[in-house]
């Protein structure tokens, strides 16, 4: 049993690129779902348009890196407008249907043969991260303590990534304790009551959809930057539902809920997966092969989440009183 590898990979997962990417996606979902009560099932689409916006701007259009970022952000904002204008006037479930369909449309357009010259088909796009890593101030070497640590490339990525995560949390914190956030939370409770008090509910829902979409789209950038590539099938519905799981795990409508939720999610995922793989390799579980570890770990992690939510239905940071009110 190689316990050292299991422990180091688990610790790396907690603070690694997965937690940055999924944490940002979940912060966006938390704004939509946790604070405003909007069921946006298309968070992956926001990530996709941003990731592809950056990739296509740099590789196909030969624009500088920063222009790519601007194009990605603009794409996410436009997507929010397109999704919101027809659906935000309607009942909440319509947004859910439209967003899940839109996310699939976006993915299928990116992987279509027709647009292969632009989006690169199912292979996606690569080779757009050069400018980002050229800005790296860390000299080559190993950064960390003992067996824990990253090379200069990853540490640069994580420094930027976690800064953006913390900045996003700060924005959410400031907004949600302001009267603006109060309107959002009130819309979650009952939008007719908010309308009767003279607030333009449509406008606030749109602002929420945009803000959450734009924070979510940052996750798309970071996915592309870490992996050096964007592929269409990464941005499937699975991505969105992982983000939802993370939000509920951390506690909906809590500032740090999505971040801690993402860390727990990936720690569990990596720890269960690697432990299982080691056990199988060393012959402790004779009826399983190493190829079966992948699916089984999904099942076990799912079981873990069920147990966690049975014990703490409000999530890690949630307030039990709120759950009690909901049950009425």
């Amino acid at each position: 049993m190689d316990w050292l590898t299991i422990i180091t990979t688990t610790v790396h997962a907690a603070i690694g690129w997965e937690s940055v990417v999924y944490g940002l996606a979940a912060i966006g979902v938390n704004i939509h779902f946790g604070y405003t009560g909007l069921l946006n099932f298309g968070q992956a689409a926001f990530m996709a348009v941003a990731g592809y916006g950056l990739a296509v701007a740099v590789t196909v259009m030969n624009l500088p890196f920063w222009m790519g970022i601007v194009i990605g952000l603009a794409a996410a904002a436009i997507l929010a407008l397109l999704l919101g204008i027809p659906t935000l006037q309607l009942r909440a479930d319509y947004l859910a249907i439209v967003t899940i369909a839109a996310a699939e449309i976006v993915r299928l357009v990116f992987r279509s043969v027709y647009f292969k010259d632009i989006f690169g088909g199912s292979d996606g796009r690569r080779g757009f991260t050069g400018d980002f890593y050229a800005m790296n101030p860390f000299p080559p070497g190993h950064y960390g303590i003992g067996p824990f640590g990253f090379d200069e490339r990853v540490i640069w990525f994580l420094a930027v990534g976690w800064s953006v995560v913390l900045l996003s949390c700060l924005v959410v914190y400031l907004l949600m304790k302001s009267p603006w956030g109060r309107v959002l939370k009130a819309i979650r409770e009952d939008e007719d009551a908010v309308r009767a008090l003279g607030k333009n509910v449509f406008s606030y829902k749109m602002q929420s959809l945009m803000l959450g979409g734009i924070i979510g789209c940052l996750a798309g950038f970071f996915y592309g930057l870490y992996n050096g590539a964007v592929q269409p099938d990464i941005f499937g519905t699975e991505m969105t539902f992982f983000a939802y799981t993370i939000v509920i795990l951390g506690g909906a409508a809590r500032v740090f809920g999505p971040v801690v939720g993402a860390m727990i999610f990936w720690v569990l995922f990596v720890f269960v997966g690697n432990t299982l793989a080691e056990l199988v390799r060393n012959g402790f579980i004779p009826f399983m092969t190493t190829t079966q570890v992948g699916p089984i770990r999904y099942a076990l992690v799912g079981l873990g989440f069920i147990l966690l939510l049975v014990i703490r239905p409000q999530g890690i940071f949630g307030d039990k009183r709120e759950i009690a009110i909901n049950a009425r």
């Binding site: 109060r182 939370k185 009130a186 009952d190 009110i325």
Partner: peptide, 8 residues
Amino acid sequence: LTKALSRL
């Protein structure tokens, strides 16, 4: 039907 904003 009263519309109290329950979780506020």
